[in-house]
Design a protein around this nucleic acid. Structure first.
Lengths: 108, 108
DNA sequence: AAAAATGGTAACCTCGATGTAACTAATGGG
DNA sequence: CCCATTAGTTACATCGAGGTTACCATTTTT
């Protein structure tokens, strides 16, 4: 678990993975799709995810340069889990009494 | 997903949830089981998880005081997901060529 | 000559998460 | 009277993730 949370336990990684899904995206597209991320942080995150074998990077020596990012097979295995996490997170927590704080008074 | 990662996306929350599993634990036991956590941070995390309805807190007005923590039903639903995440994280990433960086030279 | 497009990098700053150490309240035991 | 126990709290210090701004290299377009 420590390993898994090291990978997805930061602000942007889950979003990047979710956005990449089954397609290839260029750096510039990722900046747009991952709303709010700065270019610097996106660079860092992609580097980290690449090093951890979750993301694959393909660089084309053209002008202007082109770089495509996609998920590795291992990275794609994360998608259904993230999906579950998403469903769970959206679950309304029922406000039934037995879920609320209970303070039991007990004199001894 | 944002919601879910807000909950489990910090250093200790997943570990606390994993340790609590199906049992009730006292504050002092948690300090021991969650190795390396400080009492202050444990307090904060438990408060946060309680507020987010993942953890249930029962306080007994005894001396010395006794407080028991356990997962709510909603929190327990997280266990299988964390388990999957753990399995995934343990997966060896195959070093096959198609998972490595590819630099395609292409003159235009 | 200058701007536009692409994929970055470097220097710097901010802020929240985390850690440390000392302190509290209440009571029983020696 | 002093210590131990339990579950914290308070006042700091630190550390690293993330953000901001400016800049680079290369070629085509205006």
């Amino acid at each position: 678990m420590i390993h898994a949370t090291n990978i997805i336990g930061n602000k942007w990684a889950p979003i990047i993975i979710y956005v990449l899904e089954e397609r290839k995206l260029r750096f510039g597209q990722l900046v747009v799709f991952v709303e709010g991320i700065s270019r610097k942080v996106l660079t860092e995150q992609l580097k980290e995810l690449e090093q951890k074998k979750v993301v694959k990077r393909e660089s084309f020596a053209e002008v202007p340069p082109r770089v495509e990012y996609s998920l590795t097979e291992w990275g794609k295995e994360l998608l259904p889990i993230l999906s579950q996490l998403c469903t769970w997170g959206a679950g309304i927590s029922i406000d039934s009494d037995d879920e609320k704080n209970i303070t039991i008074q007990k004199r001894v």
